[in-house]
């Protein structure tokens, strides 16, 4: 694909990113001097134990949360210091987001949910692209259904389609398969991987599941708010292996 060939520079990145919650007794360092890059056209998985800062990293990078120090970029745009309005616009136009659950407006049907970011922007939908995304998601027959008429897996696929429909710079997905059985989860993961391979998108996904992580091109590992390791071309086994090593280290340290 042409997109993969030209994707040499980063779609998003963070430099020296720290996030501290609370003060004194309740002070928690959720992110500690994280520097990371997500390359264009790459599918990255973020892994790490619970509380290691995975969600926080995503939120800060997606402009949903503000960093305590350090900087984050989306495309060529520096996020730190950006006013709320500009951040909102950035999220709308350049970022796609998939949450673990409850991604859809119950009052809108699947198609309306997919085109929501464009409708909010008042932008015309790129019909050819939309058709491709919908096709890839495999929801063509269910577009007029409301979320309550869709299964959990289908709902997540709609959410993924929405994240991709506006052709964002990058898609963040926080445990998108966390609530799904392995078959539905597999569908979502294949879809995300296809969107990278076939549509040239950039996807970053948090997951606890080594199998899920194996769909990615690269896995980064977080522990205690620090970037501790990285694995390219992962398989479920290699990921599991790394995780065991951390666990052992975590227990001994």
């Amino acid at each position: 694909m042409t997109m993969t060939a030209t994707a040499v520079h980063a779609a998003a990145g963070a430099t020296g990113l720290s996030k501290v919650y609370g003060e004194g007794e309740t002070r928690v360092v959720a992110l500690d001097q994280v520097t990371v890059e997500f390359r264009r056209g790459e599918f990255t998985a973020i892994m790490g134990p619970s509380g290691s800062g995975k969600s926080t990293l995503m939120h800060c990078m997606a402009g949903l949360d503000t960093a305590t120090s350090g900087s984050t970029r989306i495309g060529g745009t520096e996020l730190v210091g950006l006013p709320d309005k500009a951040l909102t616009k950035l999220r709308r136009d350049q970022i796609g987001f998939v949450f673990q659950a409850f991604n859809l407006l119950p009052t809108l049907n699947a198609l309306e949910n997919i085109t929501l970011p464009m409708d909010i922007a008042g932008r015309k939908v790129d019909q050819a692209w939309l058709d491709r995304v919908v096709d890839t998601v495999g929801l063509s027959g269910r577009l007029t259904h409301r979320p309550s008429q869709l299964s959990g897996g289908q709902q997540q696929r709609v959410a993924c389609a929405r994240a991709l429909a506006s052709r964002p710079e990058i898609v963040f997905a926080d445990e998108p398969t966390g609530n799904l059985d392995s078959r539905s989860g597999g569908e979502i993961l294949s879809f995300l991987r296809n969107s990278v391979r076939e549509l040239g998108q950039t996807v970053v996904m948090v997951t606890h599941d080594p199998v899920a992580a194996s769909y990615a091109d690269r896995v980064i590992f977080l522990a205690d708010g620090r970037l501790v390791d990285e694995l390219t071309m992962p398989t479920a086994d290699s990921v599991l292996d790394r995780m065991r090593r951390f666990d052992a280290k975590g227990r001994t340290s």
């Binding site: 309005k85 999220r91 987001f97 970011p117």
Partner: peptide, 16 residues
């Protein structure tokens, strides 16, 4: 509020 948060996350501004 969850819907509102989600709408804000995907790009609806405060005015919206």
């Amino acid at each position: 509020r969850r819907e509102i948060g989600m709408l804000r996350a995907i790009g609806l501004d405060r005015r919206g």
